[in-house]
């Protein structure tokens, strides 16, 4: 839950509009570059890999959080 909240606040730093999990990333004002930056922030392990092809499938904030969460877990880092 804590991690979830932190993801929201991290995303809010890049978003230009209010959002919830159903908001599309576009409507929240997030470009692909912002998504990459979020991924870099979230994944604490430098050796973690970003699957850009999967990133292209991220449409909503909910999906974004899922992706970032996976990245943090696979990287062995903590999304918090």
């Amino acid at each position: 839950m804590t991690a979830q909240l932190d993801l929201d606040s991290r995303i809010a730093r890049y978003a230009t509009a209010a959002f919830d999990d159903d908001t599309s990333v576009m409507d929240a004002g997030l470009e692909s570059l912002s998504l990459l930056r979020l991924a870099v922030e979230v994944a604490a392990d430098d050796d973690a890999e970003i699957d850009a092809t999967r990133m292209a499938g991220v449409r909503t904030i909910g999906e974004l959080k899922q992706w970032l969460g996976d990245l943090a877990v696979h990287a062995g880092g903590d999304a918090a």
Partner: peptide, 11 residues
Amino acid sequence: PFAARRTIASF
């Protein structure tokens, strides 16, 4: 150009 960096460290 499309960003194709894969590892976190590459940023």
